[in-house]
């Protein structure tokens, strides 16, 4: 790989501080699992490649990652496995790729979920972000294609976004490797618990739906005490999601509580 980062950066201590080692597919024992979610065509695979050093084919068209891809990297002495989920617009419908993505974020229990969004289409992309934040409270928002946003004279206020969403926000241009080091550090901080997220939960829900959700969520909590995402479970149960119904029946959800220490 020809690395476009200029020589000056490589000699700078700040750049070398973390000691990023790309592990490719050598991922036998890992400390943390990172999931990579996002809308189609936001550059998830490019982010994936720049973290792992793998060269998963990237293309400028939606839906090119068909199944999930896995790779690894080491940063600051910790080993990370990163899972590139298929790009989806939402997590609430019945298509296979959305099922793969939402089941992995819930049942796969990644230590961190990185949500990659397109800086030029932030509003549409935030729908998915809010849905992911219903499932997990350990997430990092990667606002990618920031170079393109600059070209279109769009400014994204990362601090405001971080405050609203309650998770760290990193602006990146993965194709140019801009912001990748900051992303690594942030993922590391969230994974190790150095940074604690307080994710935004959707508020603009009609009163009757909100009441039903709350009631059911309370029951979910009663049944599985300590479950961090009871409202999401309630939400899926109201949707009649068979996978979630099975998870309640089999007690798989109790396992999620045990896993989350």
């Amino acid at each position: 790989m020809n690395d476009p980062i200029p020589q000056a950066c490589e000699s700078c201590p700040a750049f070398n501080a973390g000691h990023l080692t790309r592990l490719g597919i050598a991922i036998d024992t890992v400390d943390f699992v990172v999931a990579l979610a996002g809308n189609p065509n936001t550059g998830k695979s490019t982010v994936f490649n720049s973290l792992t050093g793998l060269r998963q084919h990237t293309g400028n068209w939606p839906g090119k990652t068909v199944s999930r891809a896995e790779g690894g990297f080491a940063y600051n002495g910790k080993k990370f496995k990163i899972v590139d989920l298929p790009g989806t617009y939402s997590l609430l419908s019945t298509s296979v790729d959305e099922e793969v993505a939402r089941d992995f974020i819930l049942f796969g229990q990644p230590n961190v979920t990185v949500i990659v969004v397109d800086a030029t289409r932030l509003e549409r992309n935030l729908n998915l972000v809010l849905q992911v934040l219903e499932i997990t409270d350990r997430a990092v928002l990667c606002v990618n294609l920031i170079d393109e946003a600059r070209r279109h004279k769009i400014a994204v206020d990362d601090r405001m976004l971080a405050r609203e969403l309650g998770i760290p926000v990193v602006l990146t241009a993965a194709r140019q490797r801009e912001g990748i080091t900051a992303l690594l550090q942030t993922v590391h901080d969230v994974a190790t618990g150095a940074f604690v997220c307080r994710p935004h939960r959707v508020q603009s829900i009609p009163a009757n739906v909100a009441a039903a959700l709350e009631r059911l969520a309370r029951q979910v909590t009663a049944r599985f005490p300590g479950l961090p995402n009871a409202r999401w479970v309630a939400l899926r149960l109201l949707e009649g999601d068979q996978r979630m119904i099975d998870a309640v029946k089999s007690g798989e959800l109790a396992g999620l509580v045990a896993g989350k220490t």
Binding site: S90, L92, L122, E123, R124, L126, N127, V129, L130, Q131, H152, K153, I154, A155, V156, D157, D158, M160, L161, E164, L165, H200, V202, Q203, S204, I205, P206, N208, V209, A212, L235, L238, E239
Partner: peptide, 27 residues
């Protein structure tokens, strides 16, 4: 809740998303 459940949920998400995007993005 009936059939409206899914739609009203999505609407809620869209509303929040629009509000947040509005505060964070300037053209």
């Amino acid at each position: 809740l009936g059939d409206d459940y899914h739609d009203s949920l999505m609407e809620g998400i869209y509303q929040d998303a629009a509000r947040i995007a509005d505060t964070a993005v300037t053209r």
